[in-house]
Amino acid sequence: MDWGQILDTAAGELLSPVTAAYALAAIGIGVHFGYAGLLNFGQAGFMAIGAYGFVVPTLLFDFPVWAAFLTSIAASVLFAFLLGIPTLRLRADYLAIVTIASAEIVRYVVSTTGLTDVTGGAAGLSGFNGSFTALNPFADGIYGFGPWTFTANQLWIRVVGWSLVAIASVLVYLLMRSPWGRVVKGIREDEDAVRSLGKNVYAYKMQALVLGGVFGSLAGVIYVLPRAVQPANYGTTLTFFIWTMLLLGGAATIWGPIVGAMIFATLLTLSDGILRGLISADIITFISGTQAGQIRFMIIGAVLMLLVIFRPQGIFGNKKELSFNV
């Protein structure tokens, strides 16, 4: 088996657009859960809304890229309001239930055959990337070195994806050191106390939900730009991957979601490469290649359990914060 090849692929994953998308989505639930205490278990729904919000207008109405980005954002804002208006006045657990169900509803709606003309049904949509590649400012050629060697188009999507991650992180940093962030963190601790101090808790929760949801929708766009949209990708598994990345890195931190996404994506590729390598070299004989794909999730699950037990605050989290029973 070719260790060089396996490590190369895993290292390449560090900067892949999928990783950037994961990081953005994790920053989104970082705002929801880490700072505002909102349990959003439907981030995959926001990503789907973002992806379809970008792709459908592009294909149906020939929207330029900037306009498609805007429809994607607008769709996620609308979705956030739809989720938030009935639930944000209720206890936190209700939002969790509603988001998990809504994300599933979104997935079923876009894959229904009745909407095939618009959403492509279960097969999804493709062939929408033309206008994005047309904007590529990089000349044809090969860029980078080692595992990070990209064609012009590969470089373009990575630059856009990671720029969005950077912008989102700076935005979150600026907000969370501000008095706005203080109110939001106060709501996470005890919303009645914040209410008694004259803050409109409902409005702040809505703002946080919308903000994190918009990051989710941008993640959805970056996720699909290099490939096709497939509704099957937006199941609850995706949501829980993103939760895992967030908790791995540390929920109420700036670097947590980014590094969490990088580690998660790299580990996923690495374990896959190693397992498949061992199978093709006949060292492991009792499982097949398809089974290997599932076994790596078990291994990652076990690693994460150890992490949560021994480092519950994540990599960047503050241990002191967790030592209180609040």
């Binding site: 008095p179 203080r182 109110v183 963190k185 106060g186 996470r188 601790e189 005890d190 009645d192 106390a193 914040v194 008694s196 101090l197 803050k199 914060e321 209180f324 609040v326």
Partner: peptide
């Protein structure tokens, strides 16, 4: 104020005040 206190645990005392 509340009979059962509602301090915002994972904010500093000063941040509590500023809120």
């Amino acid at each position: 104020t509340f009979q059962l206190t509602k301090s915002l645990g994972r904010l500093s005392v000063l941040q509590n005040m500023l809120l």
